[in-house]
């Protein structure tokens, strides 16, 4: 009641209490909103923009006593050294290889799973299956790595026992470079496929039931209805997620890789970001490693923009 009364009052005296005309007045009236946004503003300024300024050390020889601004410029030397290093193509291949492998396996599975969940009648089994498949999302990356190592350990791991139980020779998952990418990708699917269905299920819940009813009357099978009604419904969501994934092809989640890396699988597990960590923070080659990191960021940004551009030309579902 009180609010209605006030709203009516407000309409009557729009000039004094409504929206002020001039920009200055609007800013002054909402001065508190600037207070609200200040912490976030300073956070992004200091912890995101300041490092962008600091990335200039990629073109310098960083001398700690002289600081970032005071260190001498050397141009593209660090980039040159990186591009001509013997490990350059290995790093590129591992980074791209893991990302593309992950995309090829990890992208379709949540979609298929969401379509399958959607066909199951709401009830105990559906709730159980959803709760359980979502749960691994909450397992930390350290625990995940610990699980992988325990399950795949030669002679004691349960996966090894299961494979040997089938009479097959079990490979050395943890140390054989050929298995690293598979181990990485499939453990990721185990952990996140269930959680990944949520966004698709949200889209599927918006399907007009009338479409399905009409299709049933026309004699469409369940499969046909999924194929011609549900799948097209998911296309916009799929496109947006695909763009985002493509944009991070060079930004492979390195926290897990770092934990699973060992000297024996290095040739297949070393990616740009783990290399940056090792050369920068472990070996303290700040400038060189900042250069490699910058190269990585630039490629990421270019990929994201390029993929978005391609999608924008061919469909309506681009990010911007």
């Amino acid at each position: 009641m009180h609010i209605t009364h006030a709203a009516v009052n407000g309409n009557a005296s729009l000039h004094s209490g409504g929206s002020p005309r001039t920009l200055g007045k609007r800013i002054v009236r909402n001065w508190e909103l600037y207070l609200f946004i200040a912490p976030a503003f300073f956070y992004f300024l200091i912890f995101c923009y300041e490092p962008m300024y600091g990335v200039q050390i990629a073109f310098k020889t960083f001398i700690p006593t002289k600081g970032i601004a005071g260190s001498p410029w050397i141009g593209f030397d660090h980039f040159d050294r990186f591009f001509h290093s013997y490990y350059f193509w290995d790093l590129i291949w591992n980074t791209l290889g893991i990302s593309l492998y992950e995309l090829a396996v990890g992208f379709p599975i949540p979609i298929v799973l969401a379509l399958a969940f959607n066909e199951i009648r709401t009830g105990f089994f559906k709730r159980l299956a959803q709760t359980v498949t979502y749960a691994p999302h909450f397992i930390s990356v350290v625990v995940m790595a610990g699980m992988i190592i325990s399950f795949l350990s030669p002679s004691t791991g349960i996966v090894v026992h299961l494979i040997e139980g089938l009479g097959l020779p079990a490979p050395d998952f943890l140390t054989d470079p050929r298995w690293f990418k598979t181990m990485y990708v499939f453990s990721g699917v185990w952990q996140s496929a269930g959680w990944g269905t949520i966004i698709y299920l949200a889209a599927l819940s918006g399907v007009d039931p009338g479409l399905h009813e009409a299709a049933i009357i026309d004699g469409a099978t369940r499969f046909q209805r999924i194929r011609h009604i549900n799948v097209p419904t998911l296309l916009p969501t799929m496109t947006v997620l695909l763009i985002l994934n493509m944009g991070s092809l060079f930004g492979v989640g390195f926290e897990k890789i770092l934990l699973l890396q060992n000297p024996l699988n290095m040739e297949s597990s070393d990616v740009i970001s783990t290399f940056v960590y090792r050369s920068g923070l472990v070996d303290a080659q700040y400038s060189f490693s900042a250069a490699v990191g910058l190269f990585n960021s630039v490629i990421n940004a270019i990929l994201l923009v390029a993929v978005n551009q391609i999608v924008r030309r061919t469909s309506e579902n681009s990010l911007w």
Binding site: P51, G54, L281
Partner: peptide, 19 residues
């Protein structure tokens, strides 16, 4: 816009560490 830029581009690990 200022916040969104940080989604696409970052200074990277080493400059953040030094900061």
């Amino acid at each position: 816009a200022m916040f969104m830029v940080t989604m696409f581009f970052s200074g990277g690990l080493v400059p953040t560490y030094l900061l």
